[in-house]
Computed example of a mutant assay.
Amino acid sequence: MQTSMISGAAIDDEAQIVDDASKGNIAAQKALYSLHIRYLAGVCSRYILNTEDVKDVLQESFLKIFSSLPSFTYRGKGSTRGWMCRIVINETLKFLRKTTMFEFTELTEAESSRGYDDYEPDINEIPTSAIHEMIRELPSGYRTIFNLYVIENKSHKEIAALLNIKESTSASQLHRAKAILASRIKEYRSTLEKATL
């Protein structure tokens, strides 16, 4: 971990940074921000495409993070980032519920009969940046549910509660998102193959 200067002393212990930040130490709060902002911006931008909106959500998130720090209990490496990430996701979803009209579509009878987990795209040899871009291009409802389920490991029950939808709706949107991604990955591979001929 990077060493930070807090109160004139070199500190490389995140537990100490968190403790100092929770007591209102501005240098410690800046150090905490610097340690995690890039990762948290990445999390937020998986859901929200507009850069200015991402900045607004992160600003709200950090206000909540700093005001909630006194009640946070440090539980070892990764616990701070995990806790901050949950706050950012909650603030992101709050923003999306206010600003986005999610349009959820039910599966057709044919899609339902095939089940929800047919589409497991093969992403071997495809750059991570290309996959991220494909996910960002999904319609907002699909993108949100895909991220919550695949990246954040939320269950359909948890997603249904977060978005105020039915579990079956969450499952069907994930199915559609995977189908779109599988199709785009296939197109990407086809383009690569043509380029190498």
Rank of each mutant, 00 (worst) to 15 (best):
Y142N: 12
P70D: 01
E158S: 00
L58R: 06
G8L: 00
G78H: 07
R136Q: 14
I165F: 03
Q29W: 09
Y142V: 07
S34V: 13
S61M: 01
A31P: 07
E60T: 07
A27W: 09
R136H: 14
K30W: 13
N50W: 03
A9I: 15
E158A: 00
T80L: 00
Q2G: 07
P139C: 08
A160C: 07
N124C: 02
Q2V: 14
S79A: 00
D20F: 15
Y188P: 04
Y142M: 12
D117P: 01
A15S: 14
E133Q: 13
E103P: 05
L69F: 14
N25L: 07
R86L: 11
D13R: 08
L174I: 12
A27S: 14
K94D: 12
K94S: 14
Y149C: 12
A182V: 09
I65R: 07
P127T: 03
Q173V: 07
D12C: 13
I185N: 04
T108Q: 05
K55W: 12
F66S: 07
Y39N: 00
S67K: 08
A160F: 11
E91D: 07
Y39D: 05
G78N: 09
Q29C: 03
Y119D: 04
K77W: 08
L40P: 00
F146M: 08
T99D: 03
S129P: 10
D13K: 10
S71Y: 15
L174N: 13
K23M: 05
I165T: 01
T105C: 06
M1V: 10
V43I: 11
H156F: 13
K98N: 12
R143F: 06
Q173N: 11
I135C: 10
I48R: 08
Q59C: 15
I151Y: 08
S7E: 15
I11M: 12
I159N: 01
K55Q: 15
Y33T: 10
S129K: 13
E193A: 03
A160T: 03
L162T: 04
I159L: 04
I26Q: 15
L40W: 09
R86Y: 12
T196W: 05
Q16A: 15
L197R: 11
M101S: 12
V88H: 10
E91W: 04
K178F: 09
Q16V: 15
I11L: 06
S190V: 14
L96I: 08
I89K: 12
K55I: 14
E193R: 05
A27M: 13
K94C: 11
R143Y: 02
K55M: 10
A15R: 10
E167V: 00
R176D: 01
I165E: 01
T191E: 11
T3W: 01
L148Y: 02
D19Y: 10
R81P: 01
L58S: 09
H36R: 05
Q59R: 10
E125S: 06
E109K: 07
L197G: 01
T144W: 09
A110G: 04
P121E: 01
Y188L: 06
S112L: 15
F102R: 08
A41V: 09
Y119C: 05
S190C: 11
S79F: 03
R176I: 02
N124Y: 07
F66M: 09
K94N: 14
L192C: 03
I6E: 11
R114A: 06
V88F: 13
D13M: 11
